[in-house]
Each structure stands twice: as structure tokens, then as C-alpha cells.
Design a protein around this nucleic acid. Structure first.
Lengths: 221, 221
DNA sequence: CAGTGGTCTAGACCACCGA
DNA sequence: CGGTGGTCTAGACCACTGG
């Protein structure tokens, strides 16, 4: 059992509500509101806001108000580019040194994804599986630190992903992508892997682009 | 003039002392010591420690003590790999779109580096110039967010760099590297750029490796 | 002016370590 | 048991916004 303080739990809860889009981008969130709601004083409340600001989920207008940060298409593009570039390089390495166990782990994760989309679909659960899937190559190539950095850089992108999943209902396409990727990895087909990673990580943009300037525009900068 | 609170200034000061190696890796640093020294209470002190922990410059043994984090060779290798990979990709882009102004800026920065090593050498000033130099391609390719992420990931690496500069006195080699790089960029010589970036960013490891297991070993994990 | 954030003090209580 | 960190409360004062 992981040890968590009350404040950490609350921070996590709020973070998840932001990532879920339960708190909408642009929505104002006050310290007062949180400290009343969870019955805590300002010090822990401040810690929470500080943390969420540091990962870019909350922005503030000094001396006025805090609000859920708007999505920034430019930052999302950069984080996708960053991730694509790193992941391609890491996976190149991975195919050279992947053990049978790694391949089995990938397949296993894929089966779980299949199960999830057939059974009771749950965006958060799916997102978690997807992360675990990609994490495998960072782990075996001994690049977990890089994975952590990517993860930290992706607070913006996560909300975008969630929009993608819930708005476009694309989970089947994602699973299909993963399936293809595994086959390329097994064949050590570097060229296809590179192309596939690029298109896989960029597919969200393609799917969502149309909606960004219309119905979702108020969530963006 | 930038507006800074007292606490932020203190945090910055301590951060710099850590990066300078004025606070040695492994050295114990207590909240008590800081709050007395700067005459502040525990809340701001805690903020400072929290910040430094979050960027990996301070580690703690729970309920016992905080100490300046040890350098971790594995993390340093990963952050160099991360940076090399991203920077190669960005610079490929840069050579396609660089304006004359960009090239002049690079040259200008190089001249300042030259001046610095001939005149009064100052490691921190040199480090800053070096950052500005590399930042140029991230800026014009519209990838400043990525540069920020790299910077954040490099708290460990920065101390390593400082060791490199002060222990090995390598500044002339670095300036020479930069000079070569500019010429490759002007010629849009992609192959040489890639190789050069890789060797440039990895040169610190080569230079320091011998000392890591001997005289500097107590700074490492 | 009230409301909010920004910063800080003073002090409390608990968990854990090591002498 | 004393020292340290880990967490939190209560409340203070200031800076700034906007009605």
C-alpha cells in the first residue's frame, strides 16, 4: 500500500479532474473553494496549487485568479515532436536488445487493451494501459528517466489525448496501431517502425484538428 | 527589473551553490540551518527544499535528513542521450530555415565565448553563453518548450558540466567545437552536424570518465 | 471597498532515526 | 529521548484588481 497524505490525495484528485476535463480549461478555480471543499487550510492548499502550476495545469493572473490552463496547440505539437523523436530512437535500440519476455509483455498488454474496448470501456484505464505499453521499451533500454521527463512534459498533451479518446472514440484505431507496431518490432523492420511511431503519435492531431477551431475552440489558446 | 521575493532569491542562491559544487554532493543540508542562516521561518524554507527536491538537486532520507543529491552517472547518460537526440533533430530543421540573422547571432555568441576565455574566465558566465548558443536553434525552429524541458531534465548534468569545466579546464575545446559546428551549419552539412553534435555533447563524459572512479568517486552514486 | 492571491510567521503534532 | 523532517492550522500583512 502506497503511503499518501491527505493533501497529496486531494492534489491527485484535482489533477485527475483536470485531465478528465471534469474541470474545463479556462474555468476559474480559487484557493478558497478548495480549502472549503476539502476542509483544509491555506498552506496545503497552496502546495496543491503550486504543484499544479508547476506542471502547467493551472495558470494564474497575478493578484486576481487561478484558472485551469487552456490547451496550447503549439505546446502540444512540440511535446508530440519531442516524444516522437525520442521514442523512435529508443525503439531502434529496443528491437536490438528486446528479450522474448519483452515481446510477451507487449502482447499481454495488447490483449488487455482488446479486452477493455470490448468489455466496459473506460478512458482512464485505457490511457494507463497505453502508457504501460509505450513504457516497455524505455524500460528495457534503460531509459526510464527519459520516459519520466516525457511524462512530465505531457500534462498538456494528456488532456488532448483524453479529448481525442472521448470525442473521437478512437480507441480501436489505437489498438490496431499497437498491433501493427508489435509485428514490425518482431520483424525488426526499422523503417516501418519509424514511420508507424510518427503517424501513431501524430494521429490525434489529425483526428482532432477539425474540431479544434470549431466546437472545442474555447478550450484552446 | 525582475521581481523576486526574498524566498525565491534564497532558493536561487542555494541552487547556484549546489550547481557550483559549493555545496558538495552528499553533504547534509538541514531546514534548520537554512532558516537560521537567512532568518526565515519553516514555511518558506520548506518551499525551497520542495523546489530543490523536485528538480533533483536535493534528496532526502525520510524522517532523517536532507542532503545534496549525489550525481548519478546513469541519469547523466540518459539526459545526454535525450538532449543529443532532440538537438540533432532540431538542428536538422534549423539549417533549412535559418535566417542570416540567426547565423550572425551564432557568430556573435562565439565571439563572446572567445573573449571570455581570453580575458577573465568565469565558469558560470561561460555556462550561460553556452546555453544561449544552443538555445538559438530551438528558438528559431519554434521549439522553445522542448528546450525548457531539456533544461529541466538537466539539473544533474549541469553539475557534471561544471565539474568538467573546472576540473578539466576544457573551455577551449568547447569553443573550438562551436566554431566547427557553425561552419557545418553554414554549409548545411547535415552528416557532419549530426556527428559533431553527438561527439560535442558526449565529450564531457569522455573527458571525465577517468576521474569518476577515482578522485571524484565520492560525488557519485 | 471587498475579494483574491502572494508571502510569511509561529507554533503545533506526529513519525522515525540513532545515540 | 532529542533532533529532524513531514504535515498542518491559524492568522497576519501586503499587492493588486475590479466593481
Amino acid at each position: 500500500m502506497t503511503k499518501k497524505t491527505n493533501t497529496e490525495l486531494i492534489a491527485k484528485e484535482i489533477e485527475e479532474k483536470i485531465l478528465n476535463l471534469e474541470y474545463k480549461p479556462g474555468q476559474i478555480i480559487t484557493e478558497c473553494e478548495i480549502s472549503n471543499k476539502y476542509n483544509i487550510s491555506r498552506t496545503p492548499c497552496r502546495d496543491i496549487f503550486q504543484k499544479l502550476k508547476s506542471i502547467g495545469l493551472i495558470d494564474s493572473i497575478p493578484f486576481k485568479s487561478n484558472f485551469i490552463s487552456l490547451l496550447d496547440f503549439d505546446i502540444i505539437k512540440q511535446s508530440i515532436f519531442m516524444r516522437t523523436t525520442l521514442e523512435k530512437e529508443v525503439i531502434k535500440n529496443f528491437v536490438q536488445i528486446a528479450t522474448p519476455k519483452d515481446l510477451i509483455d507487449l502482447e499481454y498488454n495488447l490483449q488487455l487493451q482488446n479486452l477493455l474496448i470490448k468489455d466496459q470501456f473506460n478512458p482512464e484505464e485505457f490511457y494507463k494501459l497505453d502508457c504501460e505499453f509505450h513504457k516497455i521499451w524505455f524500460n528495457t533500454t534503460n531509459n526510464l528517466f527519459i520516459w519520466e521527463q516525457i511524462d512530465k512534459a505531457q500534462a498538456q498533451y494528456k488532456r488532448f489525448r483524453m479529448l481525442d479518446i472521448v470525442e473521437v472514440q478512437n480507441f480501436e484505431a489505437i489498438v490496431e496501431d499497437h498491433k501493427l507496431l508489435i509485428s514490425f518490432i518482431k520483424n525488426k523492420d526499422l523503417v516501418n517502425i519509424e514511420n508507424h511511431i510518427t503517424s501513431h503519435l501524430n494521429s490525434g492531431i489529425k483526428r482532432l484538428q477539425a474540431k479544434i477551431s470549431s466546437e472545442l475552440s474555447l478550450y484552446f489558446k
